[in-house]
């Protein structure tokens, strides 16, 4: 028998409530960094009466500044599906160059600072060249660059701490208006500029496209190598500015300046939703990741947790953030 049947589409009866639930859960998971952040702030506030004070908010902002700059710098290569491990080492090395330009070569402090930032930018540019034109693997290339720069910093400082910094140089790290520190403004500015860059410019679009599918981007007329080089260069520049800010804030450059930032600088953007496979992430997420890590650090510093357990507890808090994010990607990406 011949049995070709046509049917009309069945009417929709079930699923409406399911969709609603799905949406709510999706929303929560999308904003999980921020929700977890608020939860932690409230939690720490319960344990320590000083946590929820304006002064502490200022404190958190100051402490988030350098990490935030580094987080942005690390995020950019991640967005094009590469990585730059040399960023924290670049911070230390370039700030030492800037300090030496002032103290040993007699440059005015502002010029000296620009020299430092310039060196950082060039290092970023060089990393980009190695990765694109020489097809070096970014993980290893930047790892070796990190080791080189850490070694170079120790050699430059001979193990000593550089403190001969001009008043102008350290102003930004110390200044405050009405108790509100000035330094976080630089982070706000950087977040804004990178945000605009990513959202509104051709370069930003190209960055997301290259990170998502470099071959297709190339066929679509995007100069993939050029985009990657620019990304690394901007990352280097941000590392240089972060180096200036850190030196200015602590009024000193140690022989291992910045090296301890490495893991946190990578963790912050990833916690904030930047994909290690490229093409996904935005500045709001990065900021969330940076604030989350900073709040954990500050909170644990002023909550009376026995010091032997602080490291472990901090690690657990980060673990939870990453675990929730993984769940989000698993079910809602």
């Amino acid at each position: 028998m011949s049995t070709v049947m046509t049917t009309t589409a069945p009417k929709e009866t079930t699923g409406q409530t399911n969709v609603g639930m799905h949406k709510v859960v999706g929303w929560i998971l999308h904003n999980v960094v921020w929700i977890w952040l608020v939860a932690l702030i409230l939690g720490f506030g319960m344990f320590n009466e000083f946590f929820l004070t304006v002064m502490n908010m200022q404190n958190i902002m100051v402490q988030a500044t350098v990490l935030g700059m580094l987080g942005l710098a690390v995020a950019l290569p991640l967005l094009v599906a590469e990585i730059d491990l040399s960023i924290p080492a670049n911070l230390g090395f370039s700030s030492a160059i800037g300090a030496l330009a002032y103290s040993d070569w007699g440059m005015p402090w502002f010029l000296a600072m620009l020299v430092g930032v310039g060196v950082a930018t060039l290092i970023g540019f060089f990393n980009g060249l190695c990765i694109t034109k020489l097809r070096m693997v970014s993980l290893i290339q930047t790892l070796s660059m990190m080791i080189i720069l850490q070694g170079a910093l120790l050699a430059l400082t001979q193990g000593k701490t550089l403190t001969n910094l001009s008043d102008g140089y350290v102003w930004i790290g110390q200044a405050s208006i009405d108790g509100w520190p000035v330094m976080p403004l630089i982070l706000v500015l950087a977040l804004g500029l990178v945000g605009i860059l990513l959202k509104m410019t051709v370069l930003g679009r190209s960055i997301y496209a290259v990170g998502g599918n470099p071959l297709a981007s190339n066929s679509a007329g995007i100069r993939v190598d050029r985009v990657k080089i620019i990304t690394y260069t901007i990352a280097g520049f941000l590392a240089g500015v972060a180096g200036f800010l850190l030196a200015s804030w602590q009024m000193a450059i140690t022989s291992n300046q910045g090296s301890s930032y490495l893991l946190y600088a990578i963790a912050a953007p990833i916690i904030g939703g930047v994909s290690v496979f490229g093409g996904r992430g935005n500045v709001v997420g990065i900021l969330g990741g940076v604030l989350l890590l900073t709040v954990i650090q500050v909170g644990l510093a002023i909550t009376n947790v026995p010091s032997f357990y602080v490291g472990m507890i901090g690690g657990f808090m980060i673990f939870i953030a990453v675990a929730i994010d993984a769940i989000r990607v698993r079910y809602f990406a």
Partner: peptide, 11 residues
């Protein structure tokens, strides 16, 4: 070192 400065600030 940087962490110690931050902890002083928080304390």
């Amino acid at each position: 070192n940087t962490k110690q400065l931050e902890q002083w600030q928080s304390l």
